[in-house]
Nucleic acid binder design. Structure first.
Length: 187
DNA sequence: CTTTCGATGATCT
DNA sequence: GATCATCGAAAGG
């Protein structure tokens, strides 16, 4: 038995975003393997942390290995995993995962959608996993979170991030090659 | 397949 | 007043 390498929350958000593909993320037992992520950093104009700490992004400047939850378009709750050193302001947005655990609870929370769309997008992930502002700042190595590194190095594809107007050209969106559960196809 | 638009509230200019 | 790390429905090709 060989324990899989631990995820490095001290490193860059780009490295973590790539390493998270294939890792299993559960919230209160609901979730599955991550298939899509995006990296954000303090030196990144598209990042919430770019302008420094404030009331919303405080947990992004907190210790690595914790959650940053923000409200998107006044409607959705989206989940990030904080990395680098405390005070830096870097994180990885969880954009999509393959729904494998707690499907019944996901379907209840998401309403009448096909299973393919249960977790295909950051807002959908938040809703399916029951993410709320109460999760903001919580450590990822304890309940209700469970995060298991990918057993094998995943086959990862890269592309530009989605839904941003700044730094659009940066290839900081990562996906599991061939996955049908990503929010959008990769170029 | 594509584009458009309303929802809904915090943040930015 | 405009923008925003979005979603889903509607309308158009």
């Amino acid at each position: 038995m060989v324990a899989p390498a631990a995820l490095d929350f001290q490193g860059s958000s780009v490295d973590l975003a790539r390493a998270l593909i294939g890792a299993v993320l559960l919230v209160d037992g609901v979730g599955g393997p991550i298939v899509e992520t995006e990296a954000y950093d303090a030196e990144d104009p598209a990042s919430h942390s770019h302008r420094g700490p404030d009331a919303r992004n405080a947990s992004m400047f907190g210790p690595p290995g914790h959650a940053y939850v923000y409200r998107s378009y006044g409607i959705h709750w989206c989940l990030n995993l904080v990395c680098r050193e405390a005070g830096h302001g870097a994180g990885v947005l969880i954009r999509a995962l393959e729904p494998t655990e707690g499907l019944d609870r996901m379907r209840t929370r998401r309403g009448p959608v096909v299973d393919l769309l249960l977790c295909a997008g950051p807002g959908r992930v938040g809703q399916a996993l029951g993410i709320t502002p109460a999760h903001d700042g919580l450590p990822l190595d304890r309940a209700p979170f469970e995060l298991r590194p990918a057993a094998l190095r995943a086959d990862v594809v890269v592309g530009p991030r989605i839904g941003i107007s700044k730094a659009q050209e940066m290839p900081w969106r990562f996906g599991l090659r061939g996955s049908r559960f990503v929010s959008r196809r990769f170029p």
